[in-house]
Design a protein around this nucleic acid. Structure first.
Lengths: 220, 220
DNA sequence: ACGAATCGTTGATTTAAGTCAAAGTGACTT
DNA sequence: AAGTCACTTTGACTTAAATCAACGATTCGT
């Protein structure tokens, strides 16, 4: 169970201990909301399959997507600041999760330095990704942003043992635009443009990156 | 020493233990670079006085500012992912720091749950700030971004016991623009515009927020 | 299996912010 | 104290991407 949920370099003994605190969560259906803004943080969630988006609502009640979660990701770190979740998290498709009780995790991490390090590494990685994205969005054109988004997705899929060349976008064009600070129309236009240039082939949700090198060059 | 560097809710006993591992760092002059991208991460740094900026360099060698650090901030969390710093960090003015050896901190945090929690809280807070900023930048106009920047700065100063109404911008307009994804000219124009509207008064690096309420409203 | 609703594409037009250019201001150096 | 350099402001013009609008294509729910 622990290996499925937190597939990281831990010793068998450590894995066994982790197993005792991790629970399987009921599966989520598309559009189910896992986490509501402001809720007390009791668990972290590890994604086993499927995908989710995290978002906040601004003063006018409109969504601001701040993250997409894929299998292997851990959800909830940003709530550790005061023990409350700081965003909504919603399933983009049928999704399986593990839940990890914060309190047990904290206790366990006192005796397992490897686990402690792993948690720090996960948070640090998220922090780094988030700051990198900031730089990306601030200084790049719509095409560069989208290229970067696709390259990042692609490498995340690869890290998880899936194909980096062809995959399914579980989020809508509107979600992508929202996340990248672009309008739906712009996202759509750029996708067709990239397709015309032969960099990739899109068919609805399915993307095949035909020339990864060129896409990576565009993302720079 | 520890109270100066990490002024958080720790017991006297905990503070004493922290004291044994924290060192004073030599003062930095304006433009001194504290951290180079790729360097192994040996210490975290806590800002005692002064300020710094963190940035990455893109493929064309141009700066992408990802953070400003004020007194009380801890620098270096994003490097925990693999033990290497992921950015450059440079002093914006004469700056005093404490250095905290990572390894001792990790050992100490095994026996002090409060310290562990504090570290998680700091990282989580940074993560949250970074994600919030992402949302802000993606979905707001130049004026809203700048207003938001000033409001955030203002409240950070307040948290540190300084005036929230008038303060000095240790970074240049170019730095602000870079951070917010705006051109220098736009930053300048919006500052004069806000001044004309009576929301604030700017004189060179000095800012006085005359109508905090209106500024906050603009930041929304 | 059907209609409704959501999602995606494409075209025409508008606009916010970037770029280019130049002058003004302040601040460090010798 | 003068000159240089870096920073800031202001104006004119351009442009990338948003908005508005309309129409296909999928997906969803009954």
């Amino acid at each position: 169970m622990a290996t499925l949920c937190l597939p990281y370099q831990l010793s068998p003994e450590q894995t066994e201990k982790l197993d005792t605190i991790i629970q399987r969560h009921r599966p989520l259906q598309k559009r189910d909301v896992l986490i509501h803004n402001g809720e007390p943080l009791k668990f972290l969630y590890a994604v086993r399959s499927g995908s989710l988006k995290s978002y906040t609502l601004d003063s006018q009640g409109s969504e601001q997507i701040i993250d997409f979660h894929l299998p292997g990701d851990v959800i909830g770190f940003d709530g550790l600041i005061d023990g409350n979740h700081r965003s909504y998290t919603q399933a983009l498709e049928t999704t399986m999760l593990c839940e990890i009780p914060i309190q047990s995790l904290d206790q366990l991490s006192a005796e397992l330095p490897g686990l402690r390090k792993q948690m720090l590494r996960l948070m640090s990685g998220e922090l780094h990704a988030s700051k990198t994205l900031l730089g990306t969005l601030n200084h790049h054109s719509a095409q560069q942003r989208l290229a970067n988004f696709l390259v990042t997705l692609s490498s995340r899929f690869q890290q998880r043992g899936l194909s980096s060349r062809s995959f399914r976008l579980s989020m809508t064009r509107a979600d992508i635009g929202n996340y990248l600070g672009l309008s739906v129309e712009t996202v759509s236009r750029i996708l067709t443009q990239l397709q015309q240039e032969g960099v990739l082939a899109v068919q609805n949700k399915l993307v095949e990156i035909t020339e990864p090198e060129r896409l990576r060059a565009l993302a720079a």
